[in-house]
């Protein structure tokens, strides 16, 4: 079980609204899933390096050259709200 208080804390970190019913359900379900995941703790992997990319790619670079991109009007065409060539949002609180 993950406590409902902890569920609310994590939901806030993720900027995710949850109903009281969802919080209750999530607390049980996340607990069950994490209980199953906990078995990876059985392994002693102290000296094992982590893998982030299966092909071991690191720092792929390209020349920094200017080229044509989408216009501001095009990019803003999918936005719920826009003003003065910018994305518009409600008051920052």
């Amino acid at each position: 079980m993950i406590s409902e208080e902890e569920v609310r804390h994590v939901a806030n970190l993720a900027r995710l609204g949850l109903t009281d019913e969802e919080v209750e359900k999530m607390s049980g379900q996340l607990g069950d899933i994490l209980d199953n995941i906990d078995q990876i703790g059985e392994l002693n992997l102290e000296d094992v390096p982590p893998t982030a990319n299966a092909l071991n790619l690191t720092n792929v670079l390209r020349p920094d050259e200017p080229h044509a991109e989408l216009s501001p009007e095009t990019v803003l065409s999918t936005a719920p709200d826009a003003a003065d060539d910018l994305f518009a949002v409600p008051r920052i609180d």
Binding site: R15, V75, T78, A79, F87, P90, R91, I92, D93
Partner: peptide
């Protein structure tokens, strides 16, 4: 902000 659904509210959070 940039695409898809927005549910209106008084503040951004």
């Amino acid at each position: 902000v940039r695409y898809g659904l927005r549910v209106p509210a008084a503040g951004v959070h």
